[in-house]
Design a protein around this nucleic acid. Structure first.
Length: 897
RNA sequence: GGCUCGGUGGCGCAGCAGUCAGCGCAGCUCCUUCAUAAGGAGAAGGCCGCGGGUGCGAAUCCCGCUCGAGCCCCCA
């Protein structure tokens, strides 16, 4: 039985107050999102945490406090608010812990979750705990696997043996996005290239849309730009160069500057390019071999670090430039990457920095074919250019300009069709188009678009991840069951070849999900590229019922019936990103057992209205989730094509020394400690008062005292030393016009600031208002209650307590009503327009005096008042008034000479 | 190298054209002594990075410079 009770403490005893109201909220379920509501919805989401063993980091409550303020504010504004939390709990640390201790990662994970939950609850966040989700829960990852099956069926998942980033330390492969400067993003361990069979998701099929739809989302510009850069769309042309040894076929290159084709003086192949062996001449063979070995041994870090120092080797071979028949040498150099374009380039040193450096280094010719469009000294008559006017280039000219020497004056027709491609005088854009068209007409090339984005490497050799709901069967079995499983198979089978045998991927029927992780003897990856699951023979080698997904160990006799086939399970697991790609959808309907969420829930809640989290996910989680969401959109199961319409990044909180918080530096601040010493209301308020939410800012123990004192001051203004209501709070007193005006200004500003997440300024405004109340001998109870409502989203416990102590919490049924249940104070603009305003008098723009005047005072009357003003008059003496600027209600500026 | 953001009292931040620049912390003076490593009252402290420009009026807009921070960089 709960009742209209606050605590009885005389002083601001947050240790008593905070748990008191937290249990009150829990009993009343004040944070629940209503399931069927006629109210407008508001969905505010945090990036859910990975429950690490270290417990909550101070950065967590920073973002969480911001969203909690928004959630509480929106509730007060009459919205049905969805503010959920959950656990992104698959991941490497739990697995490493398991390797060390031999206990199942699940138990460690559950311990960590319990600790995180305790800490988060102590912070008083208004999460709807009924909607808590855990990505490692089979009831959850069942649907992660289901979504994978949709990707699989649509041909968006395939298996490929390809060079991938392998991290020996972590014993797993990593996605491109997880490798930073040649090191693993997690742990910073060196990575190397290795050929391995991997699951890959065809994210490149969505490159265009992932790029185009960025324009519709309200995201920080920097994040949009980062995604744009990561997707890296570039328009250009593929060009076919004949090799002198025509038997080897043409060499295909990609360029964004087809207009500079006349300036190509050599070509470069990546050391890994498949044609390297064939085209290298015997004389160059050993040099090329040496070079290949050297660059293969280089880590990516070295390869990029030595950016300034280009290396390479001549192959001995030559190619023919299709546009002018020129014979150009072919070099091998590792500044060309196999992974982008075609792994081969035409080098135009005059108009590309890297080619320029390389040409200088190896003394290759540099031929300028584009000049600046704004020439200073060169005379241009239409179509005529004087090459001699151009001196040797000091650096590559990479800007757009006007084509010249294209073709050069002495050029002879070599093309049998007799038609030459004349670019002279054309601006770059037109020259590009003309070249592409010319090449295309002759079958020597075509316009293409290239993306830096690669397909997403989606498998990991770990235990603690979602198992793939895939088994591998023989071709014969696959063909046999193909028809029966038609709706769940991709149009082209997913296969891989091993020891000359082709294996076919067969998905588990959706009804057989979830595919749970088996218990294993050892959590240690096998080290040869397979996960610990590969050691579990009874789970791995099975008889598989293609209709039901049932399995029996292959060591047992084959069960009767046509549906049973011999199968081997996929041993890879999904990367940690899988679970976080769609969790925001699950929150709308977290316990649904027949769908990842019901269409009704998805329709009502839609996608988050506000998403707050760190900027470190700019190209990982935020790109992957957009990709999955678009696939689900194409399937017709989600109504919107973008998952996160409004995104905000909170800044990092540094240690008191201005350095990143880390255990080794010993500058880590734990939320638990602060809650014990100052209370969570102070912590929340301080985290928001530190500075702009998006800024990187240092923690300060000294500063938190000031915020703490502010809350003390609020307390003192409400509660007298004996614990009773402060006698200065009066139910009958009418506040001064000035205080009323300030109150309404405060209401307006705090509301605006919450909407725009400028929470530090909202607090500033509240402090100013409390200072104003402080200097009044009497304050009306209504004013104080209104102020407490403004404070409530920020420091909800003290606000509830004082609200109750002032007698505002007694509901008609005798129960306690929460300050959260009251509608947000209305800002009355009429209160701001007083009958009298202070008019400032300026003379020549300088402040010279002011006076209270009636609103709507006419200009003439204002000038009269100014002339009569004793402070202003001296400045007007003996001067002539030349101009009057009058902004009614604000200033009167008299310009005199 | 590219892009972006920022330089306001000792420190952290507001203000972003119109009241001789505000808030918190620290520091100073005084009061209180039922909160004393606390509370209250009051005062002091800033040529708003530098130099130009536009305006009746600029911390606020524009241009140049300078200093600092963050992110991205061999993607042809």
């Amino acid at each position: 039985m709960f009742h209209a009770m606050s605590t009885q403490c005389k002083e601001y005893n947050f240790l008593e107050i905070e748990p008191h109201w937290q249990s009150f909220w829990e009993e009343n379920q004040s944070s629940r999102a209503e399931q069927n509501s006629s109210k407008p919805k508001y969905y505010v989401l945090d990036m859910f945490p990975y429950p690490s063993g270290a417990g909550l980091h101070i950065g967590h409550p920073e973002g969480y406090t911001a969203t909690d303020i928004v959630a509480r504010y929106k509730r007060a504004k009459g919205f049905n608010v969805l503010h959920p939390i959950g656990w992104d709990a698959f991941g490497l640390p739990a697995e490493q812990h398991a390797v060390k201790t031999g206990t199942h990662p699940a138990s460690n994970t559950q311990n960590n979750i319990a600790n995180f939950k305790r800490q988060i609850k102590a912070l008083g966040f208004s999460y709807d705990w009924q909607r808590e989700i855990d990505t490692t829960d089979p009831k959850y990852f069942r649907w992660t696997q289901w979504i994978f099956l949709q990707l699989f069926q649509r041909g968006l998942a395939y298996v490929d043996e390809r060079p991938v980033w392998w991290c020996p330390e972590l014993r797993t492969v990593l996605a491109n996005e997880e490798v930073v400067d040649g090191k693993s993003e997690v742990g910073g361990f060196p990575v190397e290239r290795k050929n391995l069979r991997q699951w890959v998701l065809r994210i490149t099929a969505y490159a265009e849309r992932l790029l185009a739809d960025l324009k519709d989302v309200d995201w920080p510009d920097s994040t949009k730009r980062m995604q744009e850069a990561w997707i890296g769309r570039s328009e250009g042309a593929e060009v076919l160069f004949k090799l002198e040894n025509e038997a080897l076929g043409p060499l295909k290159i990609f360029t964004t500057r087809p207009d500079t084709l006349f300036g190509c003086t050599y070509m470069v192949l990546a050391p890994e390019h498949p044609l390297v062996d064939a085209l290298t001449t015997p004389a160059q063979k050993s040099a090329v071999e040496d070079y290949r070995k050297k660059s293969a041994g280089k880590s990516d870090l070295e390869r990029t670090d030595l950016a300034k120092d280009k290396s390479g080797v001549f192959s001995g071979a030559f190619a023919i430039n299709p546009i002018n028949g020129a014979r150009v040498p072919i070099w091998i150099a590792d500044y060309v990457l196999m992974g982008y374009g075609t792994g081969a380039i035409m080098a135009v040193p005059a108009h590309d920095e890297r080619d320029f450096e390389f040409a200088k280094r190896f003394e290759l010719p540099i031929k300028q074919v584009v000049i600046s469009a704004k020439p200073k000294s060169i005379e241009i008559s239409p179509g005529k250019f004087v090459g001699g006017a151009i001196g040797p280039l000091k650096e590559a000219f990479c800007e757009e300009g006007i084509a010249f020497e294209s073709p050069e004056s002495g050029w002879k027709k070599t093309d049998p069709s007799g038609e030459r491609c004349d670019l002279n005088g054309l601006p770059t854009q037109e020259a590009k188009k003309k070249t592409s068209d010319w090449l295309e007409a002759k079958g020597l090339g075509k316009k293409t678009i290239n993306y830096k984005l690669r397909d997403w490497l989606f498998s990991r050799q770990r235990y603690w991840g979602e198992p793939f709901p895939i088994v591998w069967v023989s071709e014969a079995d696959y063909r046999r069951v193909e028809k029966a499983r038609a709706g769940s198979l991709p149009s082209a089978p997913v296969t891989f070849v091993s020891d000359g045998i082709t294996h076919y991927a067969l998905p588990l029927p959706a009804g057989a999900l979830p595919l749970a992780l088996p218990d294993v003897q050892s959590y240690l990856p096998s080290g040869n590229g397979e996960s610990p699951l590969a050691n579990e023979t009874a789970w791995l080698e099975i008889w598989f019922d293609v209709e039901t997904g049932a399995a029996v160990p292959a060591s047992q006799p084959r069960p009767a019936g046509d549906a049973w086939v011999r199968a081997r399970r996929e041993t890879n697991t999904m990367p940690q990103w899988a679970g976080s790609c769609w969790y925001y959808l699950r929150f709308t309907d977290p316990t649904n057992a027949s769908a990842f969420a019901s269409p009704e829930a998805l329709k009502y809640w839609g996608v988050p209205d506000l998403y707050v989290g760190g900027a470190e996910h700019a190209v990982l989680h935020l790109l992957y989730a957009r990709f999955w969401h678009k696939v689900l959109f194409d399937l017709g199961v989600v109504p919107q094509c973008e998952p996160f319409t409004k995104l905000f990044h909170q800044g990092i909180i540094l240690g008191e020394d201005g350095e990143k918080m880390s255990k080794s530096r010993g500058n880590v601040v734990s939320p638990d400690t602060i809650i014990a010493s100052h209370g969570t209301d102070t912590l929340r308020l301080y985290l928001m008062f530190l500075g702009p939410l998006e800024a990187m800012k240092p923690w300060s123990m000294q500063q938190i005292e000031g915020v703490h004192r502010f809350l003390h001051k609020v307390w003192r203004n409400c509660i007298a030393v004996d614990g009773a209501v402060n006698p200065k709070i009066s139910a009958t007193h009418a506040d001064s016009e000035e205080l009323t005006k300030l109150l309404h200004k405060t209401i307006s500003r705090v509301g605006e600031n919450i909407e725009t997440l400028r929470l530090n300024t909202a607090i500033s405004t509240m402090m100013e208002f409390v200072n104003a109340m402080q200097s009044e001998s009497l304050v009306s109870r209504a004013t104080m209650l209104t102020f407490l409502q403004l404070l409530a989203p920020f420091s909800p416990h003290i606000a509830e307590e004082l609200w109750a102590r002032l007698g505002a919490a007694e509901a008609s049924d005798g129960k306690t009503s929460s300050i959260q249940g009251t509608p947000w104070p209305r800002f009355d603009s009429a209160k701001l327009t007083a009958t009298e305003v202070k008019l400032v008098f300026q003379v020549n723009g300088k402040h010279r005096g002011d006076q209270l005047v009636p609103v709507g005072l006419a200009q003439e009357a204002a000038v009269q008042l100014a002339r009569a003003n004793s402070k202003v008059a001296p400045h007007l003496e003996g001067k002539t008034l030349t101009r009057v600027i009058y902004v009614p209600g604000k200033i009167l500026n008299l310009v005199v000479t």
